[in-house]
Design a binder for these strands. Structure first.
Length: 443
RNA sequence: GGUUCCUUGGCCAAGUGGUAAGGCAUCAGACUGCAACUCUGUGAUCGCCAGUUCAAAUCUGGCAGGAACCUCCA
């Protein structure tokens, strides 16, 4: 049984899919006006891992995540560079796709774009206007929050308590300060024709429409960063309630933010770390191992020290696997059965609201047993093989990729020569062979 | 002001009613031709105060400190 913390109910709940054996999930994607920073990598990794857990438990998963390719920031950037919006968005979508790929994520089943969903978005807004859930003023269209009676159900916000204009200047054209834009009349940049004149859609409608488009009804899981909970997800639900009379998804999953050296990453502080740079420097496996070393609902601090520790941990795991695989190959053992007990308890931890820190302890535990097994004078290769394959399967669920040693005849001869030299206590010769093995990365 | 959440050994981090997992680091051993790897052992009463309970890190209240969100930042 998979259990997940549902941020709509604020409780850990038993997961029950709408269709038996199938999971439909949607995660809000990025606005593509710039490269992905390391914080953006967290939801990518978390939800990819969640997908892998479902698949490991036998579910068929459909995972959709969008690209917001219409936005003020994109228009601004296009004007600055004197190129088209499309030039900007295709550049960053491409970069984003590379980050996803380099992070060893399973390919999305669909990655819809706003520009390619425009007809449906306009149609959807039109329905809201006709149903009096939205109203037009001077070419802008706003959602009438008071037209539905349970606004705030996702974020537990109460309209009376919300502080209007806490961060943004109030717009006195709107009926209520909490009404949000569905369509904006625009002077600059790319625009589309609509029943309300030329303009572009607001941000909150696209996800609702894309979910409808891709899944044709309620989905199991809707994910994203906690920063999207309010107002974005709240507004998605509001629109969906108005048209489809349901709250879109049964389970709302939000990952916590990532901090850089204890503080927030921001352009004004000039401390942005780009995801691609980090991946290029550390490798995808270390990035994933680090990101999953802390529970996804807890803030995670990205620092040199934390990376250093994560690297030691991962190296230890991979080193042990390497040693085991070499031992197995030197003895021509190639069984593919795995230790079911350890793999099961690993999955149990993953099933428990993606408790990756506890899942890691299962890995450490299995690695310890594997090492102990390798230390025996008389090695039980079947046992070594089982533990090795079990850990290998665990790492697959985490999306950790690593190179598996494959010994050729020369390598095997080298090991034999080394051992023979040691056998006759010719340590000078032995050290020579050892040096060669080290150079080949086999020790 | 509102909402949600966090505070566990030097660092990281699980546990959320029955008397503190794990990792990194430290120190001490073992193994080894030497080294690396590996193995064993090594420390906390859980921000503070009060309450509920046979029993609390875990529930309730208060206090202190911190975080995110409150109209487009994952």
């Amino acid at each position: 049984m998979i259990r997940l913390y549902n941020s709509r109910t604020l409780k850990i709940e038993d997961f029950k899919s709408i269709k038996p054996g199938e999971v439909n999930m949607y995660v809000c994607g990025p606005t593509v006006y710039n490269h992905a920073h390391i914080g953006n990598a967290r939801p990518i990794i978390v939800f990819d891992t969640l997908r892998r857990v479902f698949e490991a438990e036998g579910y068929k998963v459909k995972f959709v995540s969008n690209y917001t390719d219409v936005d003020d920031k994109i228009i601004k950037k296009a004007l600055e560079e004197n190129v088209s919006e499309k030039d900007i968005t295709s550049r960053y979508i491409k970069a984003y796709e590379k980050v996803r790929e380099d992070l060893n994520t399973i390919k999305l089943d669909a990655a819809p774009k706003v520009t390619e969903t425009m007809d449906q978005i306009i149609e959807f807004i039109d329905i809201l206007v006709k149903n009096k859930n939205a109203y037009e003023i001077d070419g802008d269209v706003y959602f009438r929050v008071k037209s539905i009676d349970n606004y705030g159900q996702i974020s537990n916000q109460n309209l009376d308590e919300l502080q209007a204009g806490a961060r943004i200047e109030e717009n006195d054209k709107k009926e209520s300060p909490f009404d949000f834009a569905l369509w904006k009349k625009t002077a600059d940049g790319i625009k589309w024709d609509s029943p309300w004149g030329k303009g572009r859609p607001g941000w909150h409608t696209e996800c609702v429409v894309m979910i409808e488009d891709n899944f044709h009804g309620m989905i199991d899981i809707h994910g994203g960063g906690v920063d999207l909970k309010f107002p974005h997800h709240e507004n998605e639900v509001a629109q969906n309630m108005a048209v489809h009379h349901n709250h879109i998804a049964n389970y709302w999953i939000h990952n916590a933010m990532l901090n850089l050296n204890g503080g927030k990453m921001s352009k004004s502080l000039g401390n942005i770390s780009w995801a691609q740079d980090v991946i290029d420097k550390l490798g995808s496996s270390l990035v994933r191992w680090f990101m999953l070393s802390v529970h996804y609902r807890k803030e995670l601090n990205f620092s040199d020290e934390a990376i250093e520790t994560a690297k030691k941990e991962l190296d230890k795991v991979l080193m042990t696997l390497k040693n085991a695989m070499i031992k197995l190959q030197l003895n021509d053992y190639s069984g593919d059965d795995f230790d079911e007990e350890s793999y099961r308890s690993f999955l149990d931890q993953m099933d428990d609201d993606l408790n990756t820190p506890n899942a890691y302890t299962v890995i450490y535990d299995t690695i310890k047993k594997l090492n102990a097994s390798l230390r025996n004078k008389e090695i039980n290769f079947k046992e070594v093989g089982k533990y090795t394959n079990s850990v290998d399967k665990m790492l697959k669920v985490l999306g950790i990729k690593y190179e598996k040693v494959k010994l050729n005849q020369d390598d095997k001869d080298l090991f034999k020569s080394w051992n023979d030299a040691k056998g006759i206590k010719d340590f000078e010769k032995a050290d020579l062979f050892r040096q060669k093995l080290i150079e080949r990365g086999l020790l």
